[in-house]
Every structure is written in structure tokens, then in C-alpha cells.
Nucleic acid binder design. Structure first.
Length: 596
RNA sequence: GGCUCCAUAGUUCAAGGGAUAGAAUAAAAGUUUCCUAAACUUUAGAUCCAGGUUCGAAUCCUGGUGGAGUCACCA
């Protein structure tokens, strides 16, 4: 039990005993630094149940606590705030109880219901960019956080491997590719295919321009440019199963998958199961046909199928085109159902998709509910803000994107440059150095993105690049490395890093107490992050912990302490802080180094 | 235009309706005979506007202003 839980019970007892009133809840907050005390009960909400002067009520409760609760050392009341001091024994006992729990903070007994988290879900016509990086990091991290909170998690993606955009790359490759392959060019497959997507757009724009020059209206030219018509024809052939088109589609998609895998590996994300739109859209069409019979959907004169949400304050939404082909919504219906069929223990799903699709998911969830799926109550759209450049939105077609691979490379180089200037790793092998640079570069990038509340938009300025100092990933990695250094030295000088400190009775330095308080918050922070689908809460927590630790490190001598008992305690406390940093960063998908 | 989201130091981010709004960065000053200075310690600097609800509002409500998204038989 943490101190807040203990005190909640006791404050209720106090109020019950003094005022003969049952309180439903008690509100606590950490005591502000400029007041004496460790935890503060807010008296104002109690006034609703107990009439009187808040100062006086606070004092009465404080006296009761001091008398009846072992952990309470003293109290003071300022305005309506009851500041409570907790004795060292409580914190030392707490520390003793967790020091040998390696997975402290993680819930290990799993819920029976699993959650499926979808993220990444790229189109297979272009390489991944910074926007995908945010998506991947968020999806991966939220998955890890949900696991740590006691959920079974399946990580998945839906690969958008069909559609007109794919045909555009295919067509451009046919026209201008001269049989190029990743092997002959040495290009990553996704990059190669992406180049042809850009080439298509260029040719398309040129055709429009020349048509307009010949007197064709702009809008008509946009619809009737021959290259576009040809791409549309290709899509029809694909849906009809044309051998040549399907074969080209398979080949080019395969190139892209190989390229994506490299990026995913570099980014450190993974998946338990892949779904392909080219497969699930078929099930979607079946479900629509079924729903049509049941009257959930209706057919218009031209043959297109719709659902009417005007009663719910939304629009009518198309679920099947008049020519019978599937739309975006169709495949999402099919994908959701397929997933639950494949994994019967799924109790809910999380969709990591940008906020530009808020409306789409609102409709999708409502639609699945109307179709009568009970699990539709537990669908969540993890909606996140776009990553914009100072010049505006990133556009693949126009080449104004920050490429994922390039960015990772750049971050690694920056880490290398800083590290070389500091020159602390001269005895490392080249290979070990490169590994470390990558770890630090990625740490900076991941932390930079994950520390921001998901729903907020990120403005990324490539000129200024990502920081390595202050509230950053490397700052936290550095603290971890310093801790490891202390532990190595402790072992060298024969100081125990592992004996239990149960029943220890020593004076606690103020900084030690602050650290213990912060450590105590880790489990509830994980739960809160899971409830809110927010890695940012984990990042902020870790930063606060590290700031406390750095302050402790700077102000308190650890290995230089002459009192043996205290020295051992400080070494162990440092070790535990290191473990919590490592656990927390694991939830963010960031590694920690032994040295840097 | 309808709907949705956002607005906090020069800049990038925090703040579960609670005390004097925290950090980082940029600026100014200091700390290495001492466990890694990618660190620590100081100084200065902010809630878009106008109302309302509340003992108490950055937070909730209403109306503005500014920005983004969306309203496709694209995905």
C-alpha cells in the first residue's frame, strides 16, 4: 500500500470519528516544496460534508492522524491544506519491500481480455517519413504501457497494399523504370518505389499543363489526363485479377516490405500480426452485403450502398461504390471483424491513426455497433496530432518530407559528434561506439516525440534539430550511465549492491526521501499512462525522477559516505533508480547505456 | 459555412478544479584537486480576449479572436 492509500483510510476514519460523517473520498497532492510535509490532504472538498472552518477541521484531522497513524510524524495546516509529515520508517520499509522486485511497477497478472493495438499501417507506395515515426513510436509505446498495466496485447498493422496510389507507382515504373530493381540500383525497395510515385506525379502535372495549354479546362484536365486514366485502368485490371498487373503488384510490394522491415528494425518496433487490405476488403464486402439484408445499410438507385447516421448528428456515409468496389470504410469493417475472428480473446482494439481521421473512426465505431458487435464498445481511436514542418504539411508527392531512415541516420551522427567532443569512450571498439551513438541518437529522437501529449501537433524544425541537453533522452540515459558507473565502482571496492535493506533504521537525507517519494509514484504512473494512452506521462515521470537523482548525486556523497550502512543504502537506492529508469524507458522503446 | 481539435515565458514542453502556474532552451552569473560537467546551483521571463459557474479556474460553460483538421463513389 502506498502512503496515499493508507492515509485515505485514516482520514475517513478521522472524519467519521470526529464529525460522525462518512467521506466518499479524500483528495491528496504532493506537498509543495516551500511547505513542510510530504503529502497534503485538501480540506476544501470535505467542507461539503462537514460544515466549519477549514483551518480548524484540518487541525482536528491532523491531530487524529498524528495520534492514530504510525507513519505520521507531524502536520501543519495552511489555509485549507493539511500538510502531513511521514516518518523515515515508512519510506525505508517501502524501499525494503521493492528493492528486490525487478519488475517493480509492472502488473504481472494479466487480464483475461486482450487488447489489439494497430499502428504504423503504411501505404506501400512510398517510404516511411517523420509522421510514420510518430505513429510507430506511439503505437509501440502504448502497447508496452498497456502490457505493463496488466493487459495482454497484440501488436498489429493493416497494410494498405491496394488502391490507386499503388497503381500510380506501378505505372510510372513500367513507363520510366527500364527494369530497375533494388538490386540493380542499390536503393532500398521502399525508396525505389517512392521515386516512381513522385515520377508519376511529375508526369501527371506535365500532362495537365500541356492540356491546359491546348485549351482544356483545368478541372477536366485533372480528371482526364491520360496517365491518370491509365492508372485507373490498371486498378480495374488488378481487381479483376489480371495476371500481369497482379504480378507487378506483388513484385513491387515485396520490394517495399523489405525496405519497411529495415526501417522498423532500426526504429526498434515490431508486430505480432500483419493484416493486408487486399485480403480484408473482401470480408468487408461480405459484411456489407449481409448488413444490407438486415437493413442496417441501404442501396441508392445507382447501386451504391450507404449507412444513414443523420439521427446521430453525422452524415450519410458510403460503404460500397456503385460499381461494387470497396472503399476505405469497407476494408476497415472487414479488418476489425477478421481480427476478432482470429483472436477470440480480444476485448478491445486501439487504432493509432492521425487526428485527420477522427471523423472516420467515429463513424466506423458507430457502424460496428449498429452491426451488433459487442466489442465495438471497447474500440479506441488513439488520435495524434500531425507532425508539421515550418513550411507546412509534409507531402510525399512533392518530396517535402523528412525521411525516416535519413532522420535516424542524422540523429546518430549528431550523437557521434557530441560524444567525440567529450571523448569519454576512447577505449571502446568502433563497433561498440557505433552502437552507442545509435542508442543515444534514437533515444533523443524517441524522447523528443513521445514526451509531447499525443493529441498535440508537433512542429518539427529540421534546421534546429533535436536537443541532446536538458529535458531529453540523452539526459536520462546519462543519469543511467552514471548510476552504472557507481555500481561498478561499488563492486570493485566491495560494497554490496544487493543485500536487502529490510528493517534499516537510518536518517534519511532530504534528497533521499524525495527520491523514494518519486519512485513510489511509478506504479500509479504506469496505470495512468495506460488509462490515458499517453507515453508522455511516462516520459515526464522519468524526467522528474532523473532530476531528483541528479540533484541527489550532486549534493550527497554516495561512495564517499563513511557510515557503512548509509553507503550501502545509497548504492542500492541508486541501483533502484537505475532500474526504474530502465523500466520506464523500455516502455518508451528507448535503450539505456552502461557508459556514455 | 457546419462539425472536431488546439491556444501557457522569445522558443519547445508540463501542470488528474486546489496553495506563489513547473521544466528545458535561448540570456546573465557561478560550481571540476570530489562517485562521468550530455551534470549541478542562482537570476530574469508566460496562462489569446470578454463574460459566467465555484470557497477556489490555465483547467469546466458561453461568446469572440487566431491556427489546424474534416465535411470525396481518395486512402
Amino acid at each position: 500500500m502506498n502512503i496515499q492509500e493508507v492515509l485515505t483510510v485514516k482520514v475517513k476514519e478521522a472524519v467519521s470519528s470526529i464529525f460522525n460523517v462518512e467521506l466518499p473520498s479524500v483528495e491528496f497532492q504532493p506537498t509543495r516544496k516551500d511547505f513542510t510535509g510530504d503529502i497534503t490532504a485538501v480540506i476544501f472538498p470535505i467542507l461539503r460534508y462537514v460544515k466549519g472552518n477549514p483551518e480548524q477541521i484540518g487541525n482536528q484531522i491532523g491531530e487524529f492522524l498524528e495520534e492514530h497513524v504510525d507513519e505520521v510524524d507531524g502536520f501543519n495546516v495552511v489555509k485549507g491544506f493539511l500538510n502531513i509529515s511521514i516518518n523515515n520508517t515508512f519510506y525505508l520499509d517501502f524501499f525494503g519491500s521493492i528493492i528486490d522486485t525487478p519488475d517493480f511497477g509492472f502488473v504481472t497478472n494479466m487480464d483475461s481480455d486482450a487488447v489489439m493495438v494497430e499502428y504504423s499501417s503504411p501505404n506501400t507506395n512510398k517510404p516511411l517519413h517523420l509522421g510514420h515515426i510518430r505513429n510507430n513510436l506511439l503505437g509501440y509505446s502504448v502497447s508496452e504501457i498497456l502490457k505493463a498495466s496488466g493487459k495482454k496485447v497484440y501488436k498489429t498493422q493493416i497494410i494498405n497494399d491496394r488502391g490507386i496510389h499503388i497503381c500510380k507507382s506501378m505505372l510510372a515504373w513500367q513507363r520510366y523504370g527500364n527494369g530497375e530493381t533494388p538490386e540493380t540500383t542499390g536503393l532500398k525497395g521502399d525508396k525505389l518505389v517512392g521515386n516512381y510515385y513522385v515520377a508519376f506525379d511529375k508526369a501527371y502535372k506535365e500532362e495537365i499543363a500541356s492540356m491546359v495549354a491546348d485549351g482544356v479546362e483545368q478541372k477536366i484536365a485533372e480528371k482526364e489526363a491520360p496517365i491518370l486514366l491509365e492508372a485507373q485502368e490498371m486498378l480495374r485490371k488488378w481487381e479483376a485479377g489480371d495476371d500481369e498487373v497482379v504480378s507487378l503488384w506483388k513484385t513491387m510490394n515485396q520490394w517495399v516490405y523489405v525496405g519497411f522491415e529495415v526501417t522498423y528494425k532500426n526504429l526498434g518496433v515490431d508486430f505480432d500480426k500483419y493484416y493486408y487490405e487486399s485480403y480484408t476488403y473482401l470480408l468487408g464486402k461480405d459484411v456489407v452485403a449481409d448488413g444490407l439484408k438486415k437493413g442496417v445499410f441501404y442501396k441508392k438507385e445507382d447501386g451504391s450502398v450507404w449507412i444513414d447516421f443523420t439521427d446521430e448528428g453525422l452524415d450519410e456515409k458510403i460503404v460500397l461504390r456503385s460499381d461494387g468496389t470497396a472503399v476505405y470504410m469497407t476494408q476497415d469493417i472487414g479488418t476489425a471483424i477478421q481480427r476478432v475472428n482470429d483472436y477470440p480473446d480480444i476485448g478491445g482494439m486501439v487504432y493509432t491513426v492521425g487526428n485527420e481521421q477522427d471523423y472516420h473512426f467515429k463513424v466506423l465505431f458507430l457502424l460496428l455497433k449498429k452491426l451488433g458487435f459487442s466489442w465495438s464498445e471497447h474500440l479506441h481511436h488513439l488520435s495524434y496530432g500531425m507532425v508539421d514542418l515550418p513550411s507546412g504539411k509534409m507531402k510525399s508527392r512533392e518530396g517535402t518530407v523528412v525521411d525516416a531512415d535519413d532522420l535516424i541516420e542524422e540523429m546518430t551522427k549528431t550523437a557521434e559528434k557530441i560524444s567525440k567532443e567529450l571523448g569519454k569512450l576512447d577505449d571502446y571498439s568502433n563497433e561498440a561506439k557505433q552502437g552507442l551513438y545509435r542508442m543515444i541518437g534514437l533515444g533523443a529522437l524517441k524522447y523528443y516525440i513521445l514526451k509531447v501529449d499525443p493529441k498535440k501537433r508537433i512542429l518539427f524544425n529540421p534546421e534546429e534539430s533535436v536537443d541532446f541537453q536538458g529535458n531529453t533522452g540523452p539526459f536520462i540515459q546519462y543519469a543511467y550511465a552514471r548510476i552504472q558507473s557507481i555500481l561498478r565502482k561499488a563492486v570493485d571496492t566491495g560494497v554490496s549492491t544487493s543485500t536487502t535493506s529490510q528493517g534499516l533504521a537510518i536518517d534519511l537525507h532530504e534528497k533521499e526521501k524525495e527520491l523514494l517519494k518519486q519512485i513510489q509514484l511509478f506504479p500509479e504512473t504506469i496505470q495512468l499512462a495506460a488509462e490515458n494512452y499517453s507515453p508522455a506521462l511516462i516520459a515526464n515521470y522519468t524526467y522528474d525522477l532523473v532530476r531528483e537523482f541528479n540533484s541527489f548525486y550532486q549534493n550527497v556523497s554516495i561512495l564517499g559516505e563513511t557510515n557503512e550502512e548509509k553507503k550501502i543504502f545509497r548504492v542500492q537506492l541508486s541501483r533502484k533508480v537505475g532500474e526504474v529508469i530502465q523500466s520506464a524507458f523500455k516502455l518508451l522503446g528507448i535503450e539505456v547505456p552502461d557508459r556514455m
